[in-house]
Design a protein around this nucleic acid. Structure first.
Length: 271
DNA sequence: CCCAAGACCTGGCGGC
DNA sequence: TGCCGCCAGGTCTTGG
């Protein structure tokens, strides 16, 4: 579920309910996520307040005075706010119980998500330290993308999904951004002109921003019972549409694979 | 350094 | 209905 737009939408949804609130308890029902959930979190966090909820790439950062709780939703994770007494389901692995009786609950069937703690600057954490630029930031430009792809022979789709280059472009948005930019997903990254890098950087920003707006409309209620997305499926132009006509030219959308992930593209519009 | 493949997990689906 | 293989929105790790 979580691509960058959903993580950002989640952040916006939960932040007002967490910021300034104290932690009453931490419940770990299943400590074996992507990495083991650190032991003793309850003792560390009880009585401390959350100062801010930030995002770096697809990591959510819950800032405390004495450290940062780092959350990742993996492939199948979601967060919602509910009454702490709500019975836990099979995949409800982690609760951050707040003062006042509510809790932030992590649900994650595949357990590729993560809950980590650092006392230090989270940007220097080993998982975050070497990440590339935020796609929606001002530094992510045509020049940056052009320079960063010069020596890369790999398919451009793989390169824009490489978190050391730019973060947050997941499998869906990689196909969508390349379609909007008119670039074939298999094209060698280093063969793209500066002009086409400009179109691609713009397309990435546009598709992510559009999806965040969509997420904002369908995921606004994080205090409700259901944190499920559902969102922008109707906005997708190529993803999941193999065999259907291209929305631009009518040619049938094709699918292929890059790095064991499904890729969708229009063989006529994308070169 | 770059790149492809493997690894971690569970659940849903289509086919037989 | 049951079983099997395949697929799934991520990303770290490994081996060439």
């Amino acid at each position: 579920m979580p691509e960058l737009p959903e993580v950002e939408t989640t952040r916006r949804g939960i932040a007002p309910h967490l910021t300034g609130h104290g932690v009453a308890d931490v419940i770990v029902r299943h400590p074996r996520l992507r990495w083991p959930v650190p032991r003793g979190l309850a003792g560390k966090l009880r009585g401390h307040a959350i100062n801010a909820v930030e995002r770096r790439a697809k990591y959510l950062l819950l800032r405390f005075d004495h450290g940062t709780l780092i959350l990742h939703l993996g492939m199948s994770g979601s967060l919602r706010l509910l009454e702490a007494a709500t019975p836990a389901g099979k995949h409800d692995h982690f609760d951050l119980v707040l003062d006042g009786g509510r809790a932030l609950r992590l649900t994650d069937p595949r357990r590729f998500g993560a809950v980590l703690w650092t006392r230090d600057d989270p940007q220097q954490h080993e998982l975050l330290r070497d990440l590339g630029l935020e796609p929606l930031g001002g530094e992510f430009t045509a020049d940056y993308l052009h320079a960063g792809t010069r020596k890369r022979k790999a398919a451009i789709k793989l390169v824009i999904m490489d978190s050391k280059v730019v973060v947050g472009v997941g499998n869906i948005y990689a196909s969508e951004a390349l379609f909007r930019a008119g670039i074939h997903p298999s094209r060698a990254a280093g063969s793209l002109s500066r002009e086409r890098c400009a179109r691609l950087a713009t397309a990435i920003k546009e598709v992510l921003n559009a999806a965040i707006e969509q997420g904002g409309t369908t995921l606004r209620d994080f205090t409700g019972g259901d944190g499920k997305p559902g969102y922008f499926a109707q906005e997708l132009r190529v993803y999941g549409r193999a065999g259907e006509p291209c929305v631009t030219c009518g040619t049938l959308v094709k699918s292929t694979r890059h790095g064991q992930r499904a890729t969708y593209y229009c063989p006529r519009c994308q070169r």
